[in-house]
Design a protein around this nucleic acid. Structure first.
Ligand SMILES: [Mn+2]
Ligand SMILES: [Mn+2]
Ligand SMILES: [Mn+2]
Ligand SMILES: [Mn+2]
Lengths: 225, 225
DNA sequence: TTAATTTTTTAGGCAACACTAACTATTATA
DNA sequence: TATAATAGTTAGTGTTGCCTAAAAAATTAA
């Protein structure tokens, strides 16, 4: 039996080692990196690492980096799957706000019932991506792939569509809402300013200027037509 | 902040003191009664009672009975409300089995989000009773009333409809399923056997004999027409 | 390559929740 | 009413999951 707390550690390890937006290659994770992500002290994390190792969920040698075992990754992906399915449920079936779904899903992801997850998945029509554009692992842990780039990497004149955000802070999401940017929003890159790396974009005939920082945190797919 | 464990204590106290089927008058609850209901040791419960009293959720003097404070009752009713709404959701929206909904709801009842509860309530059309026929407290803690009696109390020749069960053990629910008895099942009392207090009933032209024990645990409303 | 900095681990403490064993108060019964 | 049975409390333990302070190892910089 994996406790709620342990589940959160596994999910954090998955995020830090491979799912973090933009990161393709698997990256080893250190104790303090994990601690700071979970807003805990390193000593606390260090203690939990012993328990996770004991349960064969991670590999960890004294003073070395942490990696997930097969079992650890599979269990972590189950939580990610549940989190994103619940977010999708809250968004599409209960009309929750794009911004509010995360913290409720943070609780719902820990409900233990295979059957419930599968029923929700079915109710939603087996979605591949959550409302933030993040891939939903299937029941076997397979993650749907999609080619994305940051908005900064889109060429002048190209049309693209927002697929995900790599910053999920309230501040950023609120700012996007002000700009009327959300998943599936279509953006045309009008111009790229070399001076401050900002870009001029057009959304439904409205023009805006976005800073480099904002453009870096918007993951898009380029529209071919 | 009320912990998951504390919530379960409050819900148990509500059940034992007033919601237990058949009980109309409020009843005071003792430490060991609560302990045995929660499958815990009296000493464990005793310790928790101190914490609940500290938080002003119960009244309790050494060696005396336990009663809920206003705050304790309101908070406990919130959990009962959530439990029964989730059961209704699982049953009506996800086609869960009558028998399975309870243990999943036991987890879902602890999800903290006012908004989520209200959205689920709305999605279900503000139901007054859950799939077991138990009343769902409204958001202000008001409990819908309904006049029920045990099947044992129904007179010979009368027609009635199953509204609730007072035993929710798997054994009992499975047995009912075998008999094809569930909420809203219509039952006609054919005969009452004085010898062993068993009763003969008819369900959709099929006749059965029910023991006193079974008849005592079926709560019904008598059909007037 | 030594010194400074950062990372990781250890040691010791604490609160929530569970337990057993032993004791005390209350209630029931003879 | 005295005693036996039951109910409730206290004391001492263990686990989980968090903390601070301090030591040890590894990494980075001078
Ligand atoms: Mn999320
Ligand atoms: Mn979580
Ligand atoms: Mn139930
Ligand atoms: Mn519960």
């Amino acid at each position: 039996m994996i406790s709620l707390t342990e589940e959160n550690y596994l999910k954090a390890l998955i995020y830090l080692s491979s799912l973090a937006p933009g990161i393709e290659e698997k990256k080893d994770v250190g104790t303090s990196e994990l601690a700071s992500y979970l807003k805990l002290k390193s000593s606390t994390v260090n203690e939990m690492l012993k328990r996770l190792k004991e349960k064969n969920l991670i590999n960890h040698e004294k003073y070395k980096k942490i990696t997930l075992t097969h079992s650890g990754e599979r269990n972590g992906l189950k939580i990610v799957r549940k989190h994103r399915l619940w977010e999708t449920f809250l968004f599409t079936k209960l009309d929750f706000d794009w911004i509010e779904i995360h913290e409720v899903a943070e609780q719902l992801e820990h409900i233990k019932s295979e059957k419930l997850v599968e029923k929700i998945d079915r109710l939603l029509g087996y979605p591949n991506f959550d409302p933030h554009g993040d891939p939903i692992p299937n029941k076997h842990g397979k993650i749907p792939q999609r080619i994305t780039k940051t908005l900064s990497a889109v060429n002048k004149g190209e049309k693209c569509v927002v697929l995900a955000v790599s910053d999920t802070s309230r501040d950023f999401l609120n700012y996007l809402e002000d700009l009327d940017i959300s998943i599936k929003t279509e953006i045309v890159v009008i111009d790229k300013i070399g001076y401050d790396k900002s870009i001029k974009i057009k959304i439904k005939h409205e023009q805006y200027s976005l800073s480099r920082k904002v453009a870096d945190n918007l993951l898009v797919g380029v529209k071919l037509n």
